[in-house]
Design a protein around this nucleic acid. Structure first.
Length: 261
DNA sequence: ATGCCTTGGTACCCAAGA
């Protein structure tokens, strides 16, 4: 029995600020692949990651957004933007082949406030994502999608569903769009192993939300059927949220069998 | 009650996040 393939996702909320946390976590957790979101900025500490034993692929943007994939082997980039809107220049999508797996790292738009142009952008982005994943399904490409989806899938995924009622992360149009993606035949990896609520990946900085347990589950892995068959575990590592000057998100970790079924 | 945090960019406040 070989060791599983360990794949993680973490919204770091500024890599410049969080690099020590990221390196510390990688050293302890030893992921084979780490997807990060909200790099924030156009510089990327490639040499620091190389020294830690990881090669990088990234798509960056001044000030906001930015996603990167770190892996033991150099990611082979397939797409550095989500197809479907040539006017969209936001750095939110990176698709690469690693270890024979199509790995998609995304930072899905927040969408608040819902009466602004940001919400239709979010829904359009989700429709484009669905189209891309439908194409991969049609081609029978085994893939996983990890990242900050900015979607609370169900009531049990947030501390206070009524408080989140019409928020862009939770309102019915958002959850409907999420379901239309899952219904391509994908599995929410965390829900393959955990049925109960109260497991969160994000806690607001304000109001001592983490200490109070007021969180939401918005960072996810979605797996195509062949990879769902290989899933061994999926867990949230809450530890980095306790560190000094933390990201408001914490890592989600997926383990896959290396064996093809 | 979009704020009582945090970040980046610009300039000493504002946008954006979720």
């Amino acid at each position: 029995m070989t060791t599983p393939l360990k794949i993680a996702s973490w919204n770091v909320n500024s890599l410049r600020v969080r690099l020590p946390h990221v390196l510390r976590w990688m050293e302890a957790a030893q992921p084979d692949i780490l997807m990060i979101q909200e790099v924030k900025g156009e510089s990327f500490p490639e040499s620091e990651f190389l020294a830690a034993g990881y090669k990088a692929a990234c798509v960056l943007q001044r000030s906001w957004n930015g996603v990167a994939i770190l892996a033991r082997e150099k990611p082979s980039v397939i797409l550095d933007a989500l197809p479907g809107d040539s006017q969209d220049t936001q750095a939110r999508y990176l698709e690469a082949d690693i270890a024979g797996i199509r790995c998609i790292n995304l930072y899905l738009p927040n969408g608040n406030p819902v009466e602004s142009e940001k919400y239709p952008y979010k829904l359009a982005w989700m429709a484009r994502l669905r189209a891309r994943l439908a194409a991969l399904r049609a081609q029978a490409v085994p893939f996983l999608v990890g990242g900050d989806f900015n979607v609370i899938p169900e009531d049990i995924d947030c501390y206070d569903p009524e408080a989140w009622g019409e928020d862009a992360l939770f309102r019915m149009d958002t959850r409907r769009a999420w379901r239309s993606i899952v219904n391509l035949g994908l599995s929410d990896a965390f829900r393959l192993f955990h049925a109960q609520g109260g497991h969160y990946t994000f806690w607001d900085y304000q109001g001592r939300a983490f200490e109070a347990g007021h969180g939401i589950r918005i960072d996810h892995f979605l797996l195509s059927p062949a990879l769902a068959d290989r899933a061994l575990s999926c867990d949230i590592d809450g530890e980095p949220r306790r560190w000094d000057q933390p990201s408001d998100h914490t890592p989600i970790v997926l383990s896959l069998s290396r064996e093809e079924l």
